[in-house]
Design a protein around this nucleic acid. Structure first.
Length: 606
RNA sequence: UGCCCGAUGGUGUAAUGGUAGCACAGCAGAUUCUGACUCUGCUUGUUAAGGUUCGAGUCCUUAUCGGGCAGCCA
């Protein structure tokens, strides 16, 4: 192999594998078919929030651009004013920037605000992005691309199609259009308006634009083949009448292009070379090509390629179903940390690097697969393990009393070192927790059992266990309340097992974590689990049937005091429990609310 | 049953006519002041039948199974 000598990637680095689309790009490049470089695009419709499925598309498109020194345009595919809103433009832009931050920022294509395609030789138009190097300096005056910025050019192209005899104005009603289309196994029949003259079509189309006709009265259709076995070639609609202002384009329009017409031409105007979309658009590809070829455009044409969507077990991405969760208050909103939205994933504390690594790792194929949740969880744990600061926290407290505390030689050492990050040799460092070590501590209820199951390594009657970073304790007795519940466990500590002691390295099977009763702080901690109990929640008739009743548990936890100043940008491992991060919305300065991102892997059978 | 697409261990993916590999999961062990991490080992696969070829996961044929397509949505 020809590996670079110093190309040893960190565990967090994601090496993009090859796949059939990247192979095509490489071939095109080798054949000199991309004179102006590789240009891809991520084109969401601003009618909802981005989710984990979009992450795959984002990483594919930005990844291809990055690997080939090209660029990737963020484009709002906003040709249906009835469904879209500026709110989504903003959330989509923020989510994309978050996901590519620190990875592919350098290939993000944006443009000056308000800029539209400029006329070019041969009756052509084109629009150019601002180089990413200038983004920082010009940030306030930049915006994504918008298909709705091309309304004028798209309209002009449509007139050209009419002039070439390749499009006509049709007066059929929606129901009639549907009937004339036939069915996949039954040919359609020609519209009675199919043979209008070019002059008549031009006149009618101009009057459509001028607002002379009501919604639905007429459409512009491509003249292809009503008997085609591919229904998308049966004189597909290009334009419909909608007397509606547009969230981005304003009030000047009442005819709006449909997806198949607008998308290929938007790609062309932006100089996109590889237009990558999901499998359901496979049957649209002949139409994509037909429109571009019919216009006899002067520049190289973009090509469409399709890949399989991401399907992740125990996860739902259907907009309708997700909306139901929000509307019925099953979750707290679109950015609830249990949601598969990028906003939810981010709030949950999952690093963008982990999401990227996951979606890139599942690969790109045309096979409709279902990816196990464990693959996702592994990526998250792996990134967090490397990045998270270690802290001690007790989620379900039980009091521990060290009976011989006052006799312990605590004055003989200055510090009690606790790991901050395991890679201390690389600057991970340590912190001092000596002031937290008190006579009375909180330990996890799970870490004591009066009647332990087999192979129980934690504290039990007659047993010994190590208090992490401190010393070894031996069971003395339990205190119970009137109801017989254990309220405190009494132990003695082996003084020689303290840091610096003669038996500091003595081995015992179990180590448990703790916080000081007096020094600890109380904090709300939200314990999240998967939202659904079924690996394919989409297959359920009613999502309520497959909801996990324990997808959220809120506890008041005892945290070591250093956690009081934690901020939402910080990642922590609460030792032996999992990874946690302060909630970005509900935390207050000095009073963080923690979200559990994910538990530690637990191979001890529960 | 019109057209299009697909099928490699439990899951995802690689092998571009020449040794079926990787990751995750699982199991066993080592290590461990996190039952984590790390390390070692193991189990398990080319949908089927024909054909072409010295040689087929790969090319051809047929079958089987799965997915997609009939919005004035994208």
């Amino acid at each position: 192999m020809n590996a670079e000598p110093n190309a040893t990637p960190s565990p967090a680095a994601t090496v993009a594998p090859s796949d059939f689309i990247r192979d095509i790009v490489a071939q095109d490049l080798a054949a000199g078919r991309c004179a102006e470089g590789v240009v891809t695009r991520f084109p969401p419709e601003p009618n909802g929030y981005l989710h984990i499925g979009h992450a795959k598309s984002i990483c594919l498109n930005f990844g291809i651009a990055l690997e080939n020194g090209g660029r990737c345009h963020l484009r709002m595919d906003d040709t249906n004013p009835a469904k879209e809103d500026i709110e989504y433009v903003e959330s989509i832009t923020a989510d994309v920037k978050w996901l590519i931050s620190g990875w592919a920022d350098s290939v993000l294509g944006l443009k000056p605000k308000g800029e539209k395609p400029a006329p070019a030789p041969g009756g052509d138009f084109r629009i150019r992005p601002v180089p990413a190097a200038d983004h920082a300096a010009r940030a306030p005056e930049l915006e994504p691309f918008f298909a709705s910025d091309y309304l004028e050019q798209l309209y002009l192209f449509a007139e050209r199609l009419i002039e070439k005899g390749k499009a006509y104005v049709c007066d059929l009603s929606p129901a009639e259009t549907d009937e004339y289309r036939g069915a996949p196994d039954r040919p359609g029949k020609n519209s009675p308006f199919r043979e209008r003259t070019i002059a008549e079509n031009l006149d009618l189309f101009r009057r459509m634009r001028a607002g002379e006709f009501p919604d639905g009265a007429r459409t512009l259709r491509a003249k292809i083949d009503m008997a085609s076995p591919n229904v998308w070639l049966r004189d597909p609609l290009l334009y419909r009448i909608r007397h509606l202002a547009h969230h981005h384009a304003g009030a000047g329009w009442c005819v709006y292009p449909l997806y198949d017409y607008a998308h290929c031409l938007s790609d062309y105007l932006e100089g996109v070379t590889h237009s990558v979309c999901t499998l359901e658009f496979e049957v649209h590809r002949p139409l994509y090509d037909w429109i571009l070829e019919s216009l006899e455009l002067p520049r190289a044409l973009p090509r469409q390629y399709e890949f399989a969507k991401l399907h992740l077990a125990y996860t739902l991405v259907s907009k309708r179903r997700l909306l139901q969760l929000v509307n019925e208050k099953i979750v707290a909103g679109w950015d609830d940390p249990r949601m598969p939205t990028l906003a939810g994933i981010r709030r949950r504390g999952i690093p963008a690097s982990a999401l990227r690594r996951f979606v890139i790792g599942v690969g790109v194929t045309k096979f409709d697969s279902l990816t196990e949740l464990a693959v996702y969880e592994n990526a998250v744990r792996d990134e967090l393990n490397a990045a998270a600061h270690r802290r001690m926290a007790v989620l379900r407290p039980l009091k521990l009393v060290i009976d011989n505390f006052d006799a312990l030689p605590l004055g003989s050492f200055q510090r009690m070192h606790a790991t901050d990050r395991p890679d201390a040799d690389k600057g991970g460092g340590s912190r001092d927790i000596k002031d937290s070590f008190e006579k009375e501590l909180w330990i996890e209820q799970d870490d004591f059992s009066e009647t332990p199951p087999p192979k129980y390594f934690r504290l039990k009657p007659g047993g010994e266990v190590r208090l992490k970073y401190a010393g070894i304790i031996k069971y003395n007795s339990v205190e119970k309340d009137a109801a017989g519940q254990v309220v405190a466990v009494h132990v003695d500590m082996d003084p020689d097992s303290l840091p610096g002691g003669s038996a500091k390295d003595r081995k015992v099977k179990g180590t448990i974590h703790w916080v000081g009763v007096k020094s600890c702080i109380d904090a709300e901690v939200r314990l999240y689990d998967r939202l659904f109990t079924h690996p394919e929640p989409a297959s359920a008739e009613n999502i309520r049937d497959v909801l996990n009743p324990r997808s959220l548990e809120v506890v008041t936890a005892k945290l070591e005091p250093s956690l009081a100043t934690a901020t939402p940008e910080e990642r922590f491992q609460f030792e032996r429990l999992g990874y946690f991060t302060p909630d970005a919305k509900d935390s207050a300065p000095g009073r963080p609310v923690f979200n559990r991102t994910i538990t530690l892997k637990d191979t001890w059978a529960k």
